[in-house]
Simulated scan of single mutants.
Amino acid sequence: MEGVTLRRGSTTVFSGLNLELVESRIGLIGDNGAGKSSLFRLLCGLDTPSAGRISVHGTEVGPTDLRERPVGMMFQSPDEQIIFPTVEEELALGLEVSGVPRRQAREQVREFLRDRGLGHWAERAIACLSQGQRQHVCWLALTIAAPVLLLLDEPFASLDLPGQILLAQEIQQAPQQIIVSTHVLNHVRHFERVVWLAEGQVRSDGPGQEVCAAYEVDIARRMDSHRLHPGATLALM
């Protein structure tokens, strides 16, 4: 990302933002409204910057053919992402978009699910799945489509503890570059790099342990200030 500016109406979300994201596992942290989801939307081409340049693994981000986009994104809410009524149809979508014939795509999906012990999920109706199961379907859809970069926006929010452990293991094993935006710091604390966003700017950028610890100290300071001055906001200072 080179000199990226993003404006929404009269609000400037980013101004001249520069980021080079090359590590295989990167965490993205910060308060609500810090710009984490906006950053993801820029990287996958859902938002267009007012100025600057964005490229992902050598491909310029813009209004390109879907088959040429090297990025996949998992939204905070699976209901914003899932289109089709069954698991099989949803997972086949990414393959069909990349040019795989429908029948072949369905066969690949069934094999993909069987390899994960989820063969019985193929014909299940999305409406009958729990929130956590639908979130897992979104992860599976990204995995089978196999873009080179995966953006996961609060992927642990609707998962129970076993689901969080399973997803964390799959993130660790996946061959793609993955950027995880989360408020659950323990899921990114061990990452080689974590970026802390605050009000559209990079507040800190470095090893996960160091950046997460700095963010926790900042939160504790703001909470102490709020207790001393109950009428104060928790704004960054």
Rank of each mutant, 00 (worst) to 15 (best):
L43A: 10
L113Q: 07
I144C: 05
A198P: 10
F40I: 11
L46V: 14
E192C: 02
F191P: 01
D79Q: 11
P85W: 02
R69S: 15
S24A: 08
Q104H: 09
P101Y: 10
Q209E: 15
N32W: 04
A232Y: 10
L17S: 02
G94D: 07
I165N: 01
L42P: 09
E90L: 04
S38K: 02
G3T: 07
Q133G: 02
E90R: 01
E96I: 12
I165H: 09
H183D: 04
L91Y: 12
G27T: 01
Q133F: 04
A146T: 03
T59D: 02
E192G: 15
V184A: 12
G163K: 04
R106S: 06
T86A: 13
L39V: 10
S225H: 11
P63N: 14
L151W: 04
R203C: 09
L113H: 07
L19R: 00
S15L: 11
I126Q: 00
P147S: 11
D205V: 11
D31W: 01
L42Q: 03
E90S: 02
P49K: 05
I82N: 06
L39D: 10
S181F: 01
V202A: 07
D47E: 15
V109L: 01
D205E: 08
I144D: 01
Q201D: 10
P175Y: 07
G200F: 06
E96R: 08
G45F: 07
I54K: 10
D47P: 00
S204E: 15
H183K: 01
Q169H: 12
S50I: 00
A122C: 02
I54E: 13
C212W: 08
G52L: 03
P78V: 02
P78N: 05
H136P: 00
L66S: 06
G30I: 13
G132H: 05
I29C: 08
E170H: 08
L167K: 10
Y215N: 00
S158V: 13
Q131G: 15
L28D: 10
D65A: 09
F14R: 06
R189I: 02
V180Y: 06
E170G: 05
L95K: 06
Q201F: 00
N18H: 14
E68Y: 04
I178C: 04
R124P: 10
H57I: 08
L185G: 14
V184C: 03
G16W: 08
L234K: 00
A105R: 03
P70D: 13
D224N: 08
E60G: 07
D65T: 03
L6M: 13
A105P: 01
T64S: 13
G33A: 14
L46N: 09
Q104K: 15
H187Y: 14
E2S: 14
G45L: 03
W139A: 06
S24G: 10
Q131T: 14
V148G: 11
E80N: 15
M1C: 03
F112Y: 14
D205H: 08
T64M: 07
A213Y: 02
L6K: 12
